[in-house]
Design a binder for these strands. Structure first.
Lengths: 342, 342
DNA sequence: AGCGGTTATCGAAGCGCTTCGATCAATGCT
DNA sequence: AGCATTGATCGAAGCGCTTCGATAACCGCT
């Protein structure tokens, strides 16, 4: 193993000089700098991460707490994770994977052992047990999602309230009078997951504002559940003409079910989804949707976090604006003269 | 921050004694041990990871190289990842996330900087560029998947050859004469991904052995592609009665497509999948399948790796036996008197 | 010529831990 | 009783790096 001392000897300088060349924390003459760089290359020197971390109290590692819980949609999580890792690398950091089942304990552990410099936490609940801990822990953090009380924390997320409102507005603009929010599995609501609650909130606000009739129902992620839920929905609301879906895995099954129940999309039923763009475009018909810009959020999260580590004061909350893209699944409300039996 | 010296002082012993109590590498009298443990608890001591790593040349971190490439099915990856993290934690290790796009470079980097003790590599190609590197690098590793030349490497994977053979046998036993393998997206074959090739190999071997007629086709993961591929398949092979699918995301669409083409499952067409059990059971009809025990494989991978770190000689290759579960999607071959036009 | 102020470099201390002798007491053996 | 052996503990060295003065050389001033 080649150490900084080897490089120093090879370049004919002190180890501290090599260190300063590499960190740029003191000015070094161009000649020495070049000589050192040459030696680094010649010897293939790589700083030892532990030694560096020990001496500088900076590990250059971020922790990513990834949820593995019921009802969470995996591909989206992976998009977040990928964006986080990729961006972290761009800032010369690595990413340690923590599973949410280690919960608060895990956060405490990695901080107390100085394993990581900062932490990205996903899947935030309104009353998240990790929130008070993060406040107490003096470990720089960013939450992807908003707890109810975000005081003193840095959070970022899609503006789900607005996302739902956009959907309601879009449907109302098209003349729909009776619409429904087909939501996440009920476990997600019971856990008080922020994004699901905020979407519901936005849906209610939009429905009120536009004076349309709105109903909400959770939906489990199986084909049968979708069938049952939709049947129930149509039984309760025979004149339903618009659907807002926030539940990626059921999107395919939902379209099947509507087809099998004889409801054409968008002629009989307009469908809007809150989901990743590629999912929306992969459906027949292509779905009008508010996209979840996971990559952008993940990237921005890391950038905020790195900024924090560099002493910058980040904004307390960042809401990524929701954007609705109209595609083929939404259209004008049909005339209300059909007799429907589910 | 409380250090080992604080603990030592509090317990009235030398720091080395504290260290030995914690590591168990030398015998310590029961009284001292208890006293030290009491002090550790009283002060809330946690060893500093960097210091420990520096002094012992062991970081207690494993790297996990996760693929983010075209055609890979994300939920399965996540199951592997979760199992790896969970198991690693059980052996007091953490997991650093590396994305495959850093490729060989990333492996070199984490090793040369002593960031990790060992590495788990997923998504292995037959001629994987990382394989020669791993052989050279003197970084303990385990591959989830087999390259063509696994000499000197430790690998583990489901026995995909056998998996495909089981499927062929099952169909042949039911009297099917003309069957097809509906495979992964072609990018996965082109990349020479091990599991896809081995499945194909097993399919061919099975077909030969049982003297049935078999065709193979890759399939992209979109609804349209499934439709086109299946139509083409039925045009080429009108008397096809059995399908083996190795492509999780298209399973839903495939069943749709068959339905829309008027092929009942299993009356007209038997469908076998190589996929996670929960996916197979989430379909209508429930799919007969060979399951991919991601959790088991991930766990075993880490255990082999930890064993290696402890100096145990691991088996060169571990093939997890394939198991076929017959459910509702496979049945006896229909009589061959129908006239089909696709 | 002499002075303060840069600029470039060095040397040494120290980050918190592990680990290698060394020490000392207690033990068992002849 | 005397010696080697074992068990429990200590002290110090050192892992590879960063960082903090200190130093020396040089600049432009007066």
């Amino acid at each position: 193993m080649v150490t900084i001392a080897d490089v120093a000897k090879h370049a004919g300088v002190a180890t501290s000089t090599v260190s300063y060349v590499l960190s740029g924390k003191r000015s070094i003459s161009p000649e020495t700098r070049q000589r050192v760089h040459a030696s680094v290359d010649a010897l293939g020197y790589r700083p030892n991460a532990s030694a560096r971390a020990l001496a500088s109290s900076r590990s250059n590692v971020l922790a990513l707490v990834i949820p593995l819980r019921a009802g969470m949609h995996v591909p989206v999580m992976m998009q977040f994770a990928t964006a986080v890792v990729t961006t972290a690398r761009r800032y010369d950091h690595d990413v340690l994977l923590l599973t949410a089942d280690e919960g608060a304990t895990g956060l405490e552990r990695v901080q107390q052992s100085s394993l990581v410099d900062a932490v990205v936490v996903m899947d935030i609940e309104l009353y998240d047990e990790r929130v008070p801990l993060l406040r107490a822990l003096d470990l720089p953090s960013i939450l992807i999602g908003f707890p109810l009380d975000a005081e003193g924390l840095t959070c970022i997320d899609l503006d789900f309230v607005r996302a739902a409102e956009l959907c309601v507005d879009h449907l109302a603009d098209l003349g729909h009078q009776r619409i429904a929010l087909l939501g996440t599995p009920s476990a997600v609501y019971e856990r008080q997951t922020g994004f699901a609650h905020r979407t519901r909130e936005g849906f209610r606000a939009g429905v009120d504002r536009r004076s349309v009739h709105g109903v909400e129902t959770p939906c489990e992620s199986s084909h049968e559940a979708v069938l049952k839920t939709v049947e129930q929905l149509l039984r309760d609301e025979p004149e339903l003409t618009g659907l807002v879906v926030q539940n990626e895995p059921i999107i395919g099954p939902l379209l099947d079910v509507l087809r099998s129940l004889g409801r054409r999309v968008p002629e009989d039923m307009s469908v809007l989804a809150i989901c990743a763009d590629d999912v929306a475009e992969g459906q027949r018909p292509r779905l009008s949707s508010v996209s979840i810009p996971a990559e952008q959020i993940g990237q921005q999260a890391v950038e905020l976090l790195i900024g924090k580590l560099d002493g910058l004061a980040p904004p307390a909350g960042t809401l990524v604006p929701a954007v609705l893209t109209a595609r083929a699944s939404s259209g004008p409300a049909p005339q209300l003269d059909r007799s429907t039996t589910a």
